[in-house]
Design a protein around this nucleic acid. Structure first.
Lengths: 348, 348
DNA sequence: GAGCCTCATGTGACCGGTCACAATCCTGGC
DNA sequence: GCCAGGATTGTGACCGGTCACATGAGGCTC
C-alpha cells in the first residue's frame, strides 16, 4: 500500500486528522467511541485510520491518561508448578481484559532485593498499573510488605492471616482444608498417625498446610509427630524421606507438594520400603506428572489457575471502578486418591 | 484533592527543579549523569531528589526518548519445564540489564491468535521495546512469522533451519546433537535399534531431535523404525508406550522430553515390562524431577536458562548499539546416564 | 582589555495521546 | 425572524520526560 520504506515514526492521530480533514480531537473521539460524532465524520476518520494503518500508542495513552492496563506479577519462581499455574491464570484473565502482564522475579536468597522490589514496584506504579504479588514464600511476603500503601496490589497468599496489611485485597487457596482432607484420608485407611514433610513456610508461624494436618490428627486423637522441614524440590523430600525411612513406625507420610513426595518416594525405594505396602505417601497440588508416577501419587488438587484468574479479577476491580469487586470464591480442594496410599502393613 | 488525600501525582523533575532552585533541564542532566554539571549543583539536585522521593517516570521516558527498556516474550506455554526455564533465563538477563519483561501467551489451538499476536506485538513495538518469540511449536513459529519486519525480535527456535526469515537473529539449543548422543548411548549398550516417541514438531518437516536420532541409527546400520507421534505431556507418552509395549522387539525407547518418558515408563510398568531389564528408556531435557523417579531417568540435559540469557543478550545488542552482538554460543548438550537405561535382555 | 572557547545552565518545542472548555452548527419553539 | 440549547467540532494546555539550541559566566591567549 503506502511506502513501507522506513517511515520509522508511527502514524499519530494528527496524521489521521489531516488525512480525514478533521481535528485530532475528533480522531481521539472516534477511537474512544465517544457518542457525539456525526456518523459520516466517523466513517471518514475510520477510513483514514484504516488506510494509514494507525494504531494507538499505548505509551502515550498511559502517560496522558494515567491508566496503563498493565499488571506486574512479582514472584520468586516461575518454574515450580504452583507458581507457573497461578501465573498462567493471571495471564489468561489479563489477556481477556486486554491487559499487559509483566513479570518480576524476586531473588529469594538475600535481602538485597529491597532495591529490586522497589524498582519493579516503581515500574508498575509509573502509569497506574497494578501489582500482583505471589506471597507463598518469605521473599514474596517481604515483597508484599514492601509495596507502598497507595499502590493497587493484590496478594496471592498462603492463608488469610498472613498478609501484614489487612486493608489490601488478597486471594488464597484453602491449603488448610486440603491438608486436612489428605490427612483424614490417610487416617481413615487405618494408619495410627501421619508424618508430614513441610514446604518452607511463608512466615515464621505455622503454615496453613501444617495446621490442617495437625487439626486432623488432633481430631482423631492420633499422636502428633514433629513436621520435617523440606524444601521446594525433590531433593529436600529425598533427604527427609531418608530420615523417616529409619523409623519403622512411620507408615504414612504427607508431603507439602508433589515434588517433595517424589523425593520421599525415591528415598523409601532406596531403603527397601514398599509403597503403599509399607508406607503410604500423599502429595499436594496434583502436578501434571503425578498421575503417571509409579506408584501414581495420591494428592490434593488445588485450582491454581483459577486462583490466578481471581487475583486478576480482584485487581481489575480495584483499578477500574466499572467491574464491582467480586469476592474471591475459595475453590474446594479435591482429594485425588491414587496408588501411593493404602492401608498400613498387616491390615490388608 | 484526591479522595485518599494523598498527593497522588508523583513528583516530576520540575518539582525537583524548583526545590533545588535550578531548571528542569539541569535535573534531567543530573539523573542522566551528564558530565557538564557543576558538582555543587549536582549535589543540591541530588539532595532535592532524595528529599522529595523523586523517581523517574519510565512511561514518560519511553514516550520522549523512544526507548523503553522492555522485552516481551511470546510463548505458548509457561508451565512446561523447557519453556519456563527459557523464560527464567530471559528474565534473569533482563533484570541484570534493568529491562522490564512482559509475557504474552499464545493460544496454541486456533489461528484466531492472529489478532492477539498483532496486539502483543503492537504493544511492545509502541515504544521501541523488543520481542522474543519462543518458537518451539507451531503456534510460536506462526507468531514469529507474523512479526512485522521492522521490529526488533529474536527467535528461540528448534533448529537454525526453521526460522522463515534469515535476516532476523535467533538462538537455539543443539537438539540434534542431543538426540544423537542419547541414541548412541542406547546403541552402545547393545540394543539393536532405538524407538522414538516424538514431541510435536514446530514445523511439518522432520524435527531436529528426530533427525539426530535417525542419523545415529543410520551410522550404526540399525533399522530405522517409524517415530511415534506423542504430545508434550505424560499422557501422550503413556499412549505411545502402550503401543510399543505390544511389540516384544522393542528394547530401547528415546522420548522427546522427560514428561513423555514418564508416560512411557508408566505404560511399560502397567504391561509388566521391567525397566531397564526389558526395556531401556531415555528422556530429554533433564527436568528437575527426573533424577528422583524410580527408576531415575537417563536423559540429555539442555541449558535452557542459558538459552534464555543468550536470547536476551542478542536482543539487547540489537536494541542498543552499545553492546556488540555476540554470537550465541551453542552449549553442548550433556548426556546424563541414570537407572532407566541398561543393556538389552539376555546381554547382562 | 578584546576575542574566543569551553563549561554550565536555561528556554522552547516535541513525543502522542487526553482533558477541559470554547466555538460553531443545527433544529425547534415562540 | 430570533433565541435557547443540544449536537459536533476545534483549540490550548498538559502528562513527564528528552532533544536541539540559545545564553551567560569564566578562563585563556594575545
Amino acid at each position: 500500500m503506502n511506502v513501507t520504506g522506513h517511515t520509522r515514526r508511527s502514524v499519530s492521530i494528527r496524521d489521521v486528522a489531516t488525512a480525514a480533514g478533521v481535528s485530532y480531537q475528533t480522531v481521539s473521539r472516534v477511537i474512544n467511541d465517544h457518542p457525539s460524532v456525526k456518523p459520516s465524520t466517523r466513517e471518514r476518520v475510520l477510513a483514514a485510520i484504516d488506510e494509514l494503518g494507525f494504531r494507538r500508542n499505548s505509551t502515550a495513552l498511559a502517560l496522558a491518561s494515567g491508566r496503563s492496563r498493565a499488571v506486574t506479577v512479582l514472584t520468586s519462581n516461575t518454574t515450580h508448578y504452583g507458581y507457573a499455574s497461578v501465573l498462567q491464570g493471571i495471564e489468561e484473565a489479563a489477556r481477556a481484559a486486554s491487559y499487559t502482564v509483566g513479570i518480576g522475579v524476586l531473588e529469594s536468597a538475600d535481602e538485597a532485593d529491597e532495591a529490586a522490589v522497589a524498582a519493579q514496584v516503581q515500574r508498575s506504579a509509573d502509569a497506574g498499573g497494578g501489582l500482583i504479588v505471589i506471597a507463598y514464600d518469605p521473599a514474596g511476603v517481604r515483597a508484599l510488605g514492601a509495596v507502598p500503601a497507595d499502590l493497587p496490589v493484590v496478594g496471592v497468599v498462603e492463608t488469610p492471616a498472613s498478609p501484614p496489611r489487612d486493608d489490601r485485597p488478597w486471594v488464597w487457596a484453602d491449603d488448610r482444608e486440603a491438608a486436612y482432607k489428605a490427612t483424614r484420608h490417610l487416617l481413615s485407611l487405618g494408619h495410627k498417625t501421619v508424618h508430614y514433610v513441610a514446604i518452607p513456610s511463608s512466615t515464621r508461624r505455622t503454615s496453613a498446610r501444617t495446621s490442617g494436618w495437625q487439626q486432623a490428627l488432633k481430631e482423631a486423637g492420633a499422636p502428633q509427630p514433629r513436621p520435617l522441614q523440606g524444601s521446594w524440590g525433590p531433593a529436600g523430600g529425598h533427604a527427609a524421606g531418608l530420615k523417616l525411612a529409619g523409623n519403622p513406625d512411620v507408615t504414612a507420610i504427607l508431603c507439602g507438594n508433589d515434588d517433595l513426595a517424589l523425593g520421599v518416594i525415591r528415598a523409601l525405594h532406596e531403603t527397601g520400603r514398599a509403597i503403599p505396602g509399607d508406607v503410604s505417601v500423599a502429595g499436594f497440588d496434583d502436578a501434571p506428572h503425578s498421575a503417571y508416577l509409579t506408584p501414581s501419587l495420591t494428592t490434593v488438587r488445588l485450582d491454581f489457575t483459577g486462583l490466578g484468574r481471581s487475583a486478576f479479577a480482584l485487581l481489575h476491580g480495584v483499578l477500574e471502578e466499572s467491574a464491582p469487586i467480586a469476592p474471591h470464591p475459595v475453590s474446594v480442594p479435591e482429594l485425588v486418591v491414587r496408588e501411593s496410599s493404602g492401608p498400613p502393613p498387616g491390615r490388608e
